[in-house]
Amino acid sequence: MFERLKKVFVAGKADAGDAATSDEAVSEWAGTRGFSFTGMGQGKGFSLKGNVGGKPWKMERGRPSRDYIRGEELRARGEIKVNDDVTVLVMNRALKDALEKKAYQAYTDTLQTTADPSMPEEVRWLAMYAEVGWESLPKPFWERYAVMADHRSNAMAWLDPQLVELMMSWPEPAPDPQVPFILMVLRGKAYLRMQYTPADMPTLEHAALIFTTACESAIAGLSNDLTL
């Protein structure tokens, strides 16, 4: 299990965001965690690779691949090989509301005769999968996040108390609940996509911890021999 790091890297009087996520700082931190680090040039992003449960994962920092993300994006994929029939999508509620509003406006625009090619794939997922919920999770979680799934039992098997607690305990200065965030299991893999705000080491460390914990939880609860 990946424990939280207490060390925060600070570099002189440089801008806190730039200094805290310099290639040197990220590379040093990655080495303490057993991750491999590949830089793309200062200010151009980087990638991290590791293993969880014997399965490889990769996290990248770079330019956004979705128009709802401003600034830089953190995106990750874990080749966890769980039941590929399972689909569970966790999205911060502000993003869900914004995407639904965008889709509604597009579909009701009488001047629009073709599908909007800029519409993100996430909109289709919102249309395909119903939102689910259950009483054992705290109300603040449901205020911040929405959970969509093919079956509620799969969402419950994945979102264990430890993962939920991590998603609710971002280190200060924490990402605002409005900051786009998506965590999902789809086609046997785990994915994370989020706006890298604030762009500092505590946010990066915690995002990596959330993602690796999500991979572990999915392997434990959504493997082919366990999922109904």
Rank of each mutant, 00 (worst) to 15 (best):
R4N: 13
Y196S: 01
A103M: 12
P117M: 11
N83Q: 10
K101A: 11
E172W: 00
L95C: 09
G31C: 08
F37C: 01
T38H: 01
L226K: 14
P56I: 08
V123D: 00
G71N: 02
L192Y: 09
Q162V: 10
S169M: 10
G17V: 04
L228R: 12
A106C: 00
V164A: 10
E172Y: 00
K101N: 07
M128G: 06
F141G: 07
G31R: 10
R193F: 01
G41S: 01
R77Q: 14
W57H: 09
A98V: 02
M59A: 09
R124A: 03
M184D: 15
N154A: 12
Q195E: 15
K13G: 10
P64S: 09
K49T: 14
I69H: 04
A20T: 12
F181C: 09
G39H: 01
S153E: 15
R193D: 00
L137E: 08
E28F: 06
L192K: 04
S118V: 05
D67V: 01
E79L: 10
D67Q: 10
E121Y: 03
G62D: 03
G133D: 08
S169H: 09
G188F: 11
I69T: 02
D85L: 13
F141L: 04
A220V: 02
T32K: 11
D67C: 04
A207K: 03
D109R: 10
A130V: 11
L5A: 15
Y145N: 06
R61S: 12
V179E: 05
D67I: 08
